[in-house]
Structure formats: C-alpha cells, structure tokens
Write a protein that binds this DNA or RNA. Structure first.
Lengths: 135, 135
DNA sequence: ATAACTGTCCTAGTGTGCTAGGACACAGAG
DNA sequence: CTCTGTGTCCTAGCACACTAGGACAGTTAT
C-alpha cells in the first residue's frame, strides 16, 4: 500500500488521500475487509500530521467506503452503498455529466468519448483481475 | 439566459457560475460568438459582487471557453480547444476515471454504467437539437 | 495491571480562498 | 469631447478550510 502526496499540487492533502484510497479500492489493490494503514504510521510515512490522515479516513467513512473502529483500526467495507438506486443514479449522473460537458468543450465527439469510456472500464477490469491473481 | 445560485450550497458562487456557463454552452443554450450577460448586470441580477462574476468569467477564459474584451464584453469562443489531442485525452481520462471509480463504489455494474453514459449523451444531443430548432 | 497499540475529540494557529468596493482603462454612441 | 457602457487591477476584510499538537478512550497482548 503505497500512497503518494504532492505538496505542491494545491489540492488538500487529505483529499488526495481520499481519492487514492477510492482509486485503490476500485482497482482491486484494496479488498473488502482488509485493513488500511494505521493513522499514525501512515502519517509518519507521508510526513503529515495524524489528524490530516484521520480527516481523510473520516471523510471516507462518511462516504461509506471504509469503516473505522476506535482501538482496532480502519477497514474497507464490503457493502459499500447505503444509498437507494435512485440516489445512486443521481450521484453518478452528476459526475457523468461533468465528463460529457468537458468532452464537448474539448471537441471530443460521441464515438471517441464512448471509446475512451470503454477503454477506462477495461483498464480497471484488468487491474482487478491482476489483483485477484496475486491473491 | 437564466442562472441560479445556491448560497447555501457550500460551493463557491463563482464556481457555480463556471459550471453553469459550461453546461449552457455544451447543451446549446449558448452558441459560439454569442455574448454573455454583462458582468455588472449579471452581478446585480444574482445579488453578487461584480468581482465574483468577473472571477467566473476570468476562469472561463483561462479554460478557453469564452473570450473577454475590455470595453466590449464577453463572448463564447467557437474554437474552444487550444490543447493537443494528447492533452485533451489526459484531461478527459481524469474525469472519466472519477466517474468510473464512483460507479464502482456505488455498485453500478459495467452495463448499467454504459447505459447511463449513453442516456446522458442522448440527453445533451436532444438539448442541442432543440436549441438549433429555436434559432 | 501495564504497555503499546488503535481511532477520536478539543483547541488553536495560520494560511488562503472568496467576496467586496474603489479606481482605472478601453469602446462606442451622442 | 462627454457620457455610459464594457472588462480589469488593487486593496482589504472576512471567513473558513487545512493543518497541527495535546489529551482522551477503546482494544489487545504481555
């Protein structure tokens, strides 16, 4: 489990962590039930205050991605979505629309966009398969 | 041209404006060469300081979406992308990946995700067609 | 019981992003 | 030229997000 923080990125450190954990979970590097690095050790490794990591983990818990147990540790949740199908659709539409609007401004046509989406889905599928193999 | 600001949203006002202009441009409500509302009049309409609107327009110009002329006004650009194909791909991948990762955490499978993308592309296409007709 | 872990709460400093008002510079109509 | 419109620069205040250190509470093994 190796995370990389860019202190010159402008983006808050704790949000960089949130993205990377989400990414790791979606690409199979982290599996359901597995423990995340302890807050203090990860903070020391990244040269960051404990509370910065704690804030990231807190945000991830409120997103339903992980579960935190005082005294035990933080673990990736298996059942990741406490939302109804309708709410999930709405959340996804927001992000999909952003990508669609950006594609329009970048003058990427419909077919090229769909190809890219396919490619990225394949990319994540392959990553998951690779992780399964090395189990 | 009607914009809606949510002051309780937490998201900065000027970024809400940026999103809405991008959305309006991508859905055909704004066409290339058309003028945007004047900074002062839009600011008054939205009950916001002029500089807040100015900051939004400034951001949109640096994104290559509009062009601002001191003394004349702000206009939607026609040739919207000063980026190479490679850079455009990279920018798009970032947004597509975010949507893909979110879909994974929301337990939306590949087919449902592709259906949603198709649906949203259709949605924008229909909006553009409707705008063309009312020309 | 003690020690060494775990995550959490409280408080505070510090920077900076956001918003705001005044003054300036350019364009066009009268 | 003048007047009114346009966008822009400068400065400042103000809030809040981000980060940070100390103290606390739960867990587990020795």
């Amino acid at each position: 489990m190796v995370f990389q923080i860019d202190f010159k990125a402008g983006k808050p450190v704790y949000l960089q962590l949130v993205d990377q954990v989400r990414y790791a979970a979606a690409s199979g590097m982290l599996r359901a039930g597995e423990p995340l690095p302890a807050i203090r050790s990860l903070a020391e490794e990244l040269r960051v205050n404990r509370n910065t990591v704690a804030k990231a983990y807190d945000e991830l818990e409120s997103q339903g991605v992980i579960e935190n147990f005082p005294g035990k540790g933080c673990f990736l949740k298996d059942n990741k979505t406490p939302f109804t199908k309708q709410v999930r659709q709405k959340l996804l539409i927001k992000e999909v629309d952003e990508a669609v609007v950006t594609a329009h401004h970048l003058q990427v046509d419909r077919d090229a966009f769909l190809d890219l989406v396919d490619e990225r889905l394949d990319f994540f599928d392959r990553k998951i398969s690779a992780s399964e193999k090395s189990k």
